[in-house]
Amino acid sequence: MKNAKYISVAAVAAVFLFSMCDYVTAPRDVVIGGGGNFDTTKRVALIEEWTGHTCIACPAAARDIHTLDSIYGESFIAISIHDDYFAEPCPPHPLPNCATGVPGAFAEDFRCPTGASYSATWPSGPSSPPQGLVNRLHPSDQVITRGAWPGLVDSVVNELAATSIHLEPTYNSATRALTFNVWGVWMQAYTGDLNVAVMLTESGMVGWQTDGTSCDSQFVFEHVLRECVNTPGSITGSPVFSGTSTIGTRWSYTLPTAYTLPVAFDASHCHLVAILYNTTTQEVIQAWEEDL
């Protein structure tokens, strides 16, 4: 048939295209656990993610964060921002069907003014969690979804850091007074205006969480944002550097007035996260986390 040649060409093209398929039978690339040794010359990866107890994909994101934490150790920090619709307590938020009739279910409220400040800066953040920022390496009004986190984290932790960072908290358990000193030494020349924001996070709270098909009343919430200690209610933080750095010189910031840890927070499960960021681009230059 005279048309056979055309059909043959199409068939060959189809066979060629069908070879463009990668079948995966063992999806996991890494063995979870172990943690990496922190290299002081490298950047720390910081994930700031929006989450909520009625966000059905957020438990999976929490597992991703746990996995990243176990792989990258001290080179990885997470802050979980509970804000807006999916973090509202029930009531007024509609109770998930899987908890119908259970008194007090989903009554937890982990929202805080600093979380609202995050959302005001990245309005798309709380709209469809889980999504967030990795060292804020994105345009100012964009956040990224959880599938893109691991690749960016891996990329960041392999980059050389512009500065070292040290966070030295002091906590008086009797008075619950908290102060800190944060400082660093420039390891590369850097030009820009930098602020340091020190966030208070808390882990280990047990509460309700849904994944859409079931409800877990014993879900453990980790890295929950509580407050920005040096500028409460705002993620702005405090200026620490402006201009062009000289390698080997030091920058530092000390909290001028002690912060009183609210009694509702369990100090033994609280952490401070120092975020050094460029006020123009918002990019996080370096970060560090310490327990209280």
């Binding site: 398929c21 990668d22 079948y23 995966v24 063992a26 999806p27 996991r28 690339d29 890494v30 991703d64 996995t67 990243l68 792989i71 599938g147 691991p150 690749g151 984290v153 891996d154 990329s155």
Partner: peptide, 8 residues
């Protein structure tokens, strides 16, 4: 670019 999963 995902270090956790083998993405096709």
């Amino acid at each position: 670019q995902n270090p956790l999963l083998d993405m096709p």
